[in-house]
Amino acid sequence: MRLDKYLKVSRLIKRRTVANEACDAGRVLVNDKPAKASVQVKTGDTIEIQFGSKNVKVEVLDVKETVKKEDVESMYKYL
């Protein structure tokens, strides 16, 4: 699954366009490398997102096309 879509589906970022812009600005790292929105995300990857002065680092546990709001926490684990 594309990185921008994963960020939206997992609700780490609310909108796909915002996720796309964050990737283009270099604020998203996958496995400690700057990532474009088209990077394929798979189980076991680590994603780090820079929100202003705050960093969020998660490990991908599951990749699903659609997820209910209650089940989102099963897609990733905070590091």
Rank of each mutant, 00 (worst) to 15 (best):
K5D: 11
E48F: 04
K57W: 07
N55D: 08
V63R: 05
V28C: 02
L61W: 12
D62I: 09
E48D: 11
T46S: 10
Q50S: 13
R2Y: 10
L61K: 15
S53Q: 10
K33D: 07
A37I: 00
I47Y: 00
I13Y: 07
M75F: 08
Y6R: 10
K57R: 14
T43H: 04
G26W: 03
K64S: 04
V56T: 13
K68N: 15
K54H: 11
F51W: 09
K33I: 06
T66Y: 08
Q40K: 12
G44Y: 05
V58S: 03
G44S: 09
E21I: 09
R16F: 11
L7N: 11
V28F: 03
K54A: 10
D62R: 04
E73F: 02
L7M: 11
I13R: 03
V67N: 05
N31I: 01
L29Y: 09
D71V: 01
S53H: 12
S53A: 06
K8E: 15
K69R: 11
L12H: 14
S38W: 09
F51V: 02
K42R: 08
E21P: 02
K14H: 14
S53M: 05
V30R: 00
E59A: 07
T43A: 02
S74L: 12
V58G: 01
T46K: 12
P34Q: 10
K57E: 13
E21K: 14
T46W: 03
V58Q: 01
K36H: 07
Q40F: 06
L12P: 11
Q40W: 06
T46A: 02
V58F: 01
N55Q: 09
P34K: 14
K42T: 11
K68Q: 13
K33L: 11
L7H: 09
T66P: 00
R2V: 07
V60Y: 02
V58E: 04
D4H: 15
D24W: 14
L79K: 06
I13G: 04
A35M: 05
K57F: 02
K77F: 06
D24Q: 15
A25D: 13
R16D: 07
S10D: 14
